[in-house]
Write a protein that binds this DNA or RNA. Structure first.
Lengths: 219, 219
DNA sequence: AACACTATTGACCGCATGGTCAATAAAGAC
DNA sequence: GTCTTTATTGACCATGCGGTCAATAGTGTT
């Protein structure tokens, strides 16, 4: 961990102090998201968060009494930012499953591809033991809801005779699983492996799930 | 983090010292796997690892100069223990895909359900940024190989006209994704949600992937 | 301009824990 | 039994970082 030789050729700017009580929390949270995503919760230093937020270390503690509290705030922020998008998709569960699945997966690809959800997933996976309450909240607010929506849509389609009988919840796993897996894949192997193209995966997986891999036997 | 009131009604046994140079490393690694799995790398204390291995803290450092080294040893151990099983499965890539996929998924369900691979996955996901070299090794030794085998099997089946054309690597994601996702799901939500039954998922997902969700239109 | 209020600061503290090492005692040689 | 070797120990050190707080300086008020 060699440290830059400390060349004080120029001081770090000493920007004049500013008072912006109400802008601070979100700025600090934003910085924390970046730092946590980069180093993980345990290895992240609050001083780095502070610097990134353009603030002194003490200021962080003014708004978040504890590192844990900051992490909770981060999780909560990312969560709510995604909840809104989720509510939007709650409509049209009764459309034909052959339309719904591709839409669903394309949507998932978009969310995963752009936002900070994958990084948050990584953090939650990493810290689920240290913060079981956060795991629970995310489960109840996101995972369970998404899974529930999908399951419901599937059951309705089954009732309509569109798709095969079978455990609807497991079908939901079949549908979502590859998207989640590839989201984490991208996080973990970002610099190591060729990353799967999300929209392409979404599109092909939708077709696969609906029609199956097998070609009709032409023999 | 209240500490037990330190009732020294009985000392921790003071077991007589033993010298077993060659048995130590594996014992320590075993203990480390347990502790890391339980608390994560960052939060794990080497003293706990030592106690669990029935050894003094200093002894750990005799065999593993650094906490990082211990983690690497842990990752390496779990890796090799799974590599053997992998080689076994390398055979029969040319069997009909309709047999291969269910076998593959059932195998995956078994490995995930019993061993310490899910915990190791969690650790790797968590620490992939701190230990990019480990991420790379796991990718090259496990992920890439599994994906490669599957991809190859799929391409051959395509050449035989068994299954649809399409990006074989993404097909591999479609096949494995749900198993990986549910492995992590179980790790993260172990105490929070009803856990999907792995063999059942494997079996149903195999059928879904092969035949698709849609029923032939009987209208 | 003087003042009051308080957001902000950064030097400081304490603790937890990774890491060291001189002392100790098992195990074997004789 | 005595001696040698060295695996093992646990008290100890050093450091990094979470967390505190008296001092400081924006900002609005008069």
């Amino acid at each position: 961990m060699a440290k830059t030789p400390h060349s004080n050729a120029e001081k770090p700017k000493a920007r004049p102090r500013q008072r912006r009580k109400d802008a601070r929390p979100s700025e600090i949270i934003e910085a924390a998201i970046a730092i946590f995503a980069e180093r993980g919760f345990g290895a992240a230093r609050l001083e780095d968060v502070a610097r990134r937020a353009g603030v002194a270390k003490g200021t962080v503690f003014v708004y978040f009494p504890t590192k844990d509290d900051l992490f909770r705030a981060v999780a909560q922020t990312v969560l709510t930012s995604h909840l809104e998008r989720l509510h939007g998709a709650a409509a049209d569960l009764d459309r034909p499953i052959a339309e719904l699945v591709p839409m669903f997966l394309a949507q998932a690809a978009a969310v995963i591809g752009e936002g900070r959800l994958p990084a948050m997933m990584r953090l939650l996976v990493a810290e689920s033991r240290q913060f079981p309450d956060l795991a629970r909240v995310w489960h109840d607010e996101v995972v369970s809801k998404v899974l529930g929506m999908l399951t419901l849509a599937i059951e309705r389609a089954q009732a309509r005779g569109e798709i095969r009988p079978g455990n609807a919840r497991l079908y939901a796993f079949s549908i979502m699983g590859p998207m989640l897996a590839s989201a984490l894949f991208r996080e973990v192997f970002r610099d190591t492996a060729p990353l799967p193209d999300l929209p392409e995966l979404a599109e092909q997986h939708a077709r696969t799930i609906l029609d199956g891999l097998l070609l009709p036997d032409a023999s």
